[in-house]
Every structure is written in structure tokens, then in C-alpha cells.
């Protein structure tokens, strides 16, 4: 796909950082406000899609590397399952950090409250793991589809030239 005009590239350079930060904000506050792992991951992946569209596929391949995304995706998935295994002292997926005083372990006040980020135990960790996996996974999907489109366009152009 061709790259877009200069105005689009300047605005993209300015704004993609803010989109990624906003996405991580949604991932991190998943246990208090609407959002969580998948929603935040999708927002971060949309920043990568914006980079891909505004710079074109050939230039974007230089700074969006598929192998790093694949490694991040596997790390996110493994972190999710390992955190689930750590609760195996009682049952699988047991929330062993909630109400315990350590990491993310403050007591939760039942009912309507202004929201304390340090609560809810295992949930923020799993949100981060899922968010990592989702943005890496959606990034890989978008990059591979762009690759496929490029390949078919080259084949069509080669046939039209013949």
C-alpha cells in the first residue's frame, strides 16, 4: 500500500504515542473502570494499524518487527497461565493475592467507593498479560494481512505488464 501525504505523517508522528499510553491506561485500570485486557489491547493495536496505513507497508516493516511481536505474544500468554497455576495451592485460578496485604492486596470496601487501584489481587496482573497478548496478536494479524495484500498486488501488476 502506498504511503500517505505529509500532513497525515506529521499528525501520526505526534499522536501515536498518546494512543499507546491511552491503551495502557485502559489495560491497567481494568478492575475499576470499564475496560481491561482485551479492550486496551485493541486500542494499542489500532495505533500500530495507524502507523502501518500512514507510512505504507514497505517503510512500516522496518520499525514493526513481526518476530518481536510474536515473542511478546508468547510472553503474555505464558504469564497468564503461570499466574493461574500459582493459585494451585487451593484451586486453579484462585485469587491468592486479594485481601492479603501484599502486592495489589488492599481490602476491598463493598458497595459504592471512589476506587482504589491497589486492590483486586490477581486481576490486574492477568489484565496486563491479556493486554500484552492482544496487542501483539492483533499487530501480527494486521502486518501479515498487509504482506498478503502487497504480494497479490505485485502478482497482478506482473500479469498486467505481460
Amino acid at each position: 500500500m502506498k504511503e500517505m501525504s505529509r500532513i497525515v505523517k506529521i499528525v501520526t508522528n505526534f499522536i501515536y504515542g498518546f494512543i499507546i499510553i491511552f491503551g495502557f491506561y485502559i489495560i491497567a485500570h481494568g478492575h475499576l473502570t470499564p475496560g481491561g485486557g482485551f479492550q486496551g489491547g485493541a486500542v494499542v493495536a489500532s495505533a500500530f494499524a495507524m502507523l502501518l496505513i500512514s507510512y505504507g507497508q514497505l517503510k512500516a516493516k522496518k520499525f514493526l518487527n513481526i518476530n518481536i511481536f510474536s515473542l511478546l505474544e508468547s510472553c503474555g500468554l505464558t504469564m497468564f497461565i503461570v499466574v493461574a497455576f500459582l493459585g494451585l495451592g487451593t484451586t486453579f485460578f484462585y485469587n491468592f493475592l486479594a485481601n492479603s496485604g501484599s502486592w495489589f492486596g488492599n481490602m476491598v470496601i463493598p458497595g459504592i467507593n471512589p476506587g482504589d487501584m491497589n486492590t483486586a489481587g490477581v486481576l490486574p496482573l492477568m489484565n496486563i498479560a491479556v493486554g500484552l497478548e492482544v496487542f501483539a496478536g492483533l499487530g501480527i494479524i494486521v502486518l501479515l494481512m498487509a504482506d498478503g495484500a502487497e504480494y497479490t498486488k505485485k502478482k497482478e501488476n506482473a500479469e498486467n505488464d505481460r
Binding site: 475499576l32 473502570t33 470499564p34 458497595g111 459504592i112 467507593n113 471512589p114 476506587g115
Partner: peptide
């Protein structure tokens, strides 16, 4: 209202 406890109307 929406089922969110953080700063919900009482």
C-alpha cells in the same frame, strides 16, 4: 445504571 462501583450514583 451501569454496573460499575467506582463513583457510582447512590
Amino acid at each position: 445504571v451501569a454496573p460499575i462501583y467506582t463513583q457510582a450514583p447512590s
